[in-house]
């Protein structure tokens, strides 16, 4: 009985658009849904450092090197706040990392695609961060307070990243014939995986109904994907690139683009671990974590020695 009353109060708060805070009562499913979603988001920021980091040493100008380094540093910072937000739900960062390493937790499949050329760094900023922003703008109004506040901060930085990515893409697209080819190739490879970032169709999505009821998500996967397509197609046209969708056309009457269907077999394949880089990304992360074990142990041992010295003194 008591739980039913609590649940009603909880839902009333949500319906009144009040934020749920860490110490508030929440249904267990709400907690686990958020633990899964926020940690997945944090892991994505961190794993995303790998494909982008792949080009720091080869960035074609010192300015572009500095911009890329600063961007990756921001992404790592986002990972850090998101882990902190996820920790308010009663699990430690170490536990979340164990779930990542065991394969229980996921990260965005987009980072299982390789960055093969410099233009891919443009595509990641423009398309991947562009898709992430559409999702994150919506999540600024999510019902869980710490997640919502993290999103407000993250959105500010992401919009810079998207502009920087577009700038790289535009510079290539408007450059020499080889650069233009590189830009078109990057768009060809990253377009569909970027659309897949929004997740399955609403009808296929296991988590959408609860997430909407609890206002964790404010818009559905399909609504967000549509927003992204409508704004991005025009950006491609402006720099003379062709979106690799033969069914894409402008519908004059509705004032919007119509588009083709995603290859869902590819989507599920990558989710299940068969993307070009799934194993590489995970091995890399686990190796860095394991190589760092002695460092973390030393830091703890040192801190404990200092503590006992203080006690003696």
């Amino acid at each position: 009985m008591e739980d039913i009353k609590k649940l009603e109060e909880f839902q009333a708060k949500i319906d009144a658009d009040l934020k749920i805070e860490p110490k508030d009562w929440m249904p267990e499913e709400y907690r686990t849904h958020l633990q899964r979603q926020i940690s997945q988001h944090a892991h994505s920021e961190v794993i995303g450092m790998q494909p982008e980091g792949n080009w720091i040493s080869r960035a074609p100008s010192l300015r572009s090197k500095v911009v890329l380094l600063a961007k990756i540093q921001d992404e790592a910072g986002h990972g850090q706040y998101l882990y902190s937000a996820a920790e308010t739900l009663g699990k430690s960062r170490d536990e979340y990392l164990e779930e990542l390493h065991s394969g229980k937790a996921k990260y965005s499949s987009i980072f299982n695609y390789p960055t093969l050329t410099w233009a891919d760094i443009g595509a990641v900023g423009w398309l991947v961060d562009g898709a992430a922003i559409v999702n994150q703008v919506s999540l600024q109004r999510t019902s869980y307070g710490p997640y919502s506040r993290a999103m407000v901060r993250i959105c500010k930085e992401e919009s810079f990243h998207q502009r920087q990515g577009y700038e790289i893409m535009a510079t290539c697209a408007l450059g020499t014939p080889e650069q233009k080819k590189m830009a078109q190739d990057a768009l060809n490879r990253f377009w569909w995986p970027s659309l897949m970032m929004f997740g399955p169709h609403d009808s296929e999505s296991a988590h959408t109904a609860n997430a909407m009821k609890w206002r964790i998500k404010r818009e559905t996967n399909d609504e967000l994907r549509d927003k992204f397509i409508q704004k991005t197609v025009q950006q491609a046209e402006v720099i003379g690139l062709t979106v690799p969708d033969p069914d894409l056309k402008w519908n004059e009457a509705d004032g919007r683009y119509e588009y083709g269907e995603i290859n869902w077999d590819e989507f599920w394949n990558v989710v299940k671990g068969n993307g070009p880089c799934n194993k590489q990304r995970m091995r890399h992360h686990i190796k860095a974590h394991e190589d760092g074990t002695w460092v973390r142990e030393a830091a703890i041992a040192y801190a404990e020695k200092q503590k006992s010295k203080q006690l003696v003194a």
Partner: peptide
Amino acid sequence: AEWCSNGPILEEDIAMTNLALDLIGQA
């Protein structure tokens, strides 16, 4: 910059990228 995504903890990854940024700025 080679340390990016290879740090022993996330905070060190951020610190080392930051060092790289300062140094390349100086260069």
